[in-house]
Amino acid sequence: MASDFLPYGRQSLDEADIAAVVDVLRSDFLTQGPAIPRFEKAVADWCGARHGIALSNGTATLHCAAQAMGLGKGDWLWTSPITFVASSNAGRYCGAQVDFVDVDPATVCLCPDRLEAKLQQAEKQGRLPKIVVPVHFAGQSCDMPRIHALSQKYGFRILEDAAHALGGSYEGERIGNCRWSDAVSHSFHPVKIVTSAEGGMITTNDEELAWRIGALRTHGITRESSRMQGESDGPWYYQQIELGYNYRMTDLQAALGASQMEKLDRFAQRRQELAELYDRTLAGLPLRPLARDPRGISGWHLYMIRLDLEAIAPLTRRQVFESLRAQNIGVNVHYIPVHLQPDYRQFGFQKGDFPEAERYYEECITLPMFPAMTDLDVMRVKEALCQALHAAA
């Protein structure tokens, strides 16, 4: 890969992060030690939630939270078709059926109007969801007060997928504080707002839910005598009280994550500045960014553009994408609609089911966005875009 390659996302590490990991390497604990509760507290405190439960990755958080909420065979989980497949796969891991709600054409977050209409129809059919997973796409919150109001009317639980959104807020409330949901899932993959290399976390205000997720991440095992069947044999004793998983985070990862959390506000501010610079710099080109909901502040995990395909014809999105890649601009596409994946078509999903999601997919390109980017990097992306679009001029 060329040295001047500009990726769409990249971790931002400093000497403090490295020192935090080295400290763990020199300590008595590499796996389950004091860094994990420290990281859990840092995330929960920043969000304003009562509990944080660290897990091995974001997929594990969704799976364990859904199972802890009682999702199982015969139940339904609904989510957005514009997301990574983990959001819907969590339902399938629990043996549940999965369906989707089309996105808002402006923000590409799950559309509350379409959700309400689908709930009305599902109620008539006796197929209401047990869990709805709103995806805070690119870092911008869904309309959580509206979705919460619908949950009160129709009786479903809410698991927010905030893998893109740590550092953002909605109506003055930090994303992750669980005001409008049962739990919130976070991801710390290297391209996310902060990283623990791999890792995820659930924030929740529900003490029992927090305990159950904590048990599920460790094989369904408890050492608490009050949770056991019968008497404990002694201080060494444990019981597996349900089938769980090995979804634990390590102290190495948690130490990195806790160090990164000290820089979250700075990272979020720089991402906001880059987004605003992109907005100004790209104005006038045959494209548009995602619309902003004025009630919230995005975490800005990703910066997407939607090409005006009519204006650039006969040029195609693929040609623009490949031109940018040829110029060492590491663009990407987020995401292929989940319902169009071959493994989901077996359930009867087909093209045309969720037209707004499909329209977005046909037009979108993800541009580079990470805190270490400079203003000159944004200008470089703009110049590359102009060159890629030149054939349509």
Rank of each mutant, 00 (worst) to 15 (best):
A2T: 10
D4K: 11
L13W: 15
I18K: 15
V21S: 04
V22N: 14
L25G: 13
F29N: 05
P34E: 11
K41V: 01
A44V: 04
W46K: 07
A49V: 05
A49G: 06
A49L: 03
R50G: 11
R50W: 01
G58F: 08
A60H: 14
T61W: 01
G70I: 04
L71F: 10
G72L: 07
G72F: 10
G74T: 06
W76N: 11
S80E: 03
I82W: 05
A90E: 10
A90H: 07
D99H: 12
P105F: 03
T107L: 05
D113M: 09
E116P: 09
E116F: 09
Q120W: 09
K124F: 05
G126H: 11
P129D: 09
V132L: 13
P134I: 02
V135K: 05
A138I: 11
M144D: 15
P145D: 11
I147F: 14
H148C: 14
Q152H: 04
Q152K: 14
A165F: 00
G172V: 04
I175F: 04
G176E: 02
G176T: 05
R179K: 15
R179G: 05
A183I: 10
A183M: 07
V184G: 03
S196N: 02
E198Y: 14
M201L: 15
T204D: 09
L209C: 07
I213K: 06
R223E: 13
Q229D: 12
Q229L: 12
W236C: 12
Q240K: 14
N246Q: 11
M249K: 00
Q253H: 13
G257C: 06
E262W: 02
K263M: 12
K263T: 10
A268H: 00
A268I: 01
R270A: 00
R270D: 02
L274C: 06
A275W: 01
L277A: 07
T281G: 08
G284R: 00
P286E: 00
L287G: 06
R288Q: 14
L290N: 05
A291S: 06
D293C: 00
G296K: 01
W300L: 04
H301M: 10
L302C: 10
Y303H: 14
D308S: 08
E310Q: 15
I312L: 02
R317C: 09
R318W: 13
R318I: 08
S323V: 02
L324R: 00
V331Q: 01
P337E: 03
V338K: 00
R345D: 06
F347T: 00
F349L: 02
P355W: 00
E356P: 03
E362H: 06
T366G: 13
L367G: 04
L367I: 01
L367F: 02
L376M: 11
V381R: 01
E383H: 06
L385R: 00
C386R: 02
H390C: 09
A392P: 04
